[in-house]
């Protein structure tokens, strides 16, 4: 009997070990523990034994039965787990799908960043026309005709055909041009609004000049204008410093303000910045206090209001921020460039 028990135990355990699927395990379980199994037969035959033998053998048989049941259950559980995970498991190391999403042009991105910063300082954002007249682009900004100051802005002029059969012919018809800066919007805005106000004007401007890595025939500017009572140059300094600090975020930034000349401001200044440890001053903004002749042109009283104006180049800031070496990339239409943003 002893021998039988050991044999049963051994062969059952071997069978359990070898099994690979839960279904097969059920079959084997029936074979070893089912009603017709050897063990059941032995248990059933206990009643034919003497009390003494029964006492001796009974507990052993019961114990074996329990042991085998435990082994089967454990094995079944293991098999079920490994079996199901094998079937459902994915190879998470495979590459993700390529999701096609579009890219916003870096200049649009920079423009919006700038707008958001100024918006947070209570500036409004307005735009103006790209085709301008001489008056708004030059005269009203204290850049008179036949003055060499105009040479600071190389201009594209539009070809215009004069109307012939017109009686009320004006001697010197005004000429149309592509705006050379966003500053004419200073005039247009002030013609229609009263101070106090603070605005920025992003927009495309044009220069008649040879293109190279830092010059383009069309590019973007952002004009700023803040007018009110007792607006000061010290206020201007505060606003632009806040702007640049926010724009360049965590980078260490130093400022340099130095004299400059634009006919529509007095005093006129140039703003340079130095980023991180680069050690190079970068010219980033022309600015100044709005000239009294500009206020005169829009019908403000220059003794009542003061204000400051500034202009910055979008491409220039984008080039500094993203380390882009050539301005012409912005207008190349090259998706290998655009898709980096």
């Amino acid at each position: 009997m002893e021998f039988d028990l050991n044999k049963i135990k051994k062969s059952a355990q071997e069978a359990i070990e070898e099994l690979a699927s839960p279904e097969k395990l059920e079959e084997i379980k029936i074979k070893f523990l089912g009603r017709k199994s050897e063990l059941t037969e032995l248990l059933r035959s206990l009643k034919d034994l003497s009390i003494e033998e029964r006492r001796k053998l009974g507990p052993k048989l019961q114990e074996l039965k329990k042991e085998l049941e435990r082994s089967f259950d454990k094995r079944l559980k293991d098999l079920r787990i490994s079996h199901s995970t094998l079937r459902e498991r994915i190879d998470v190391t495979k590459p993700g799908h390529k999701i096609t999403s579009g890219h916003i042009h870096p200049l649009s991105k920079i423009e919006e960043e700038i707008e958001q910063i100024f918006l947070s300082m209570n500036f409004s954002v307005v735009e103006g026309p790209e085709v301008e007249d001489e008056y708004h682009n030059f005269d009203a900004l204290n850049i008179p005709k036949d003055h060499p100051a105009r040479e600071m802005w190389d201009t594209f002029w539009l070809r215009q055909n004069e109307i012939k059969n017109q009686k009320s012919k004006i001697k010197n018809p005004e000429k149309l041009l592509l705006r050379t800066h966003t500053s004419p919007m200073q005039i247009r805005y002030m013609e229609k609004n009263n101070p106090p106000f603070q605005i920025i004007v992003p927009g495309r401007v044009f220069r008649y000049e040879a293109t190279d890595a830092s010059h383009e025939i069309n590019f973007y500017q952002v004009e700023g204008l803040m007018v009110g009572k007792d607006m000061s140059l010290a206020n201007f300094k505060f606003v632009v410093e806040e702007f640049f600090k926010k724009f360049f975020g965590s980078q260490k930034i130093e400022f340099r303000f130095r004299p400059s000349y634009f006919p529509f401001v007095e005093p006129g200044v140039e703003v340079d910045i130095k980023l991180g440890k680069s050690g190079k001053w970068l010219e980033v903004m022309g600015a100044g206090m709005v000239h009294r002749k500009v206020f005169d042109a829009v019908g403000y009283n220059p003794n009542d209001v003061t204000g400051f104006a500034f202009g910055l180049g979008l491409e220039r800031l984008a080039m500094i921020k993203y380390k882009i070496p050539d301005i012409r990339l912005f207008y190349s239409g090259d998706l290998r460039f655009i898709k980096q943003f």
Binding site: L119, N122, V126, M226, K237, F238, V239, E241
Partner: peptide, 21 residues
């Protein structure tokens, strides 16, 4: 200009925003 202190302006607070366009 470098020695000039930066001073926050007293601004007339009104809702700012973008043109519709």
């Amino acid at each position: 200009y470098g020695k000039l202190k930066s001073v926050p302006p007293y601004a007339f607070l009104k809702p700012s925003g973008f043109e519709d366009q």
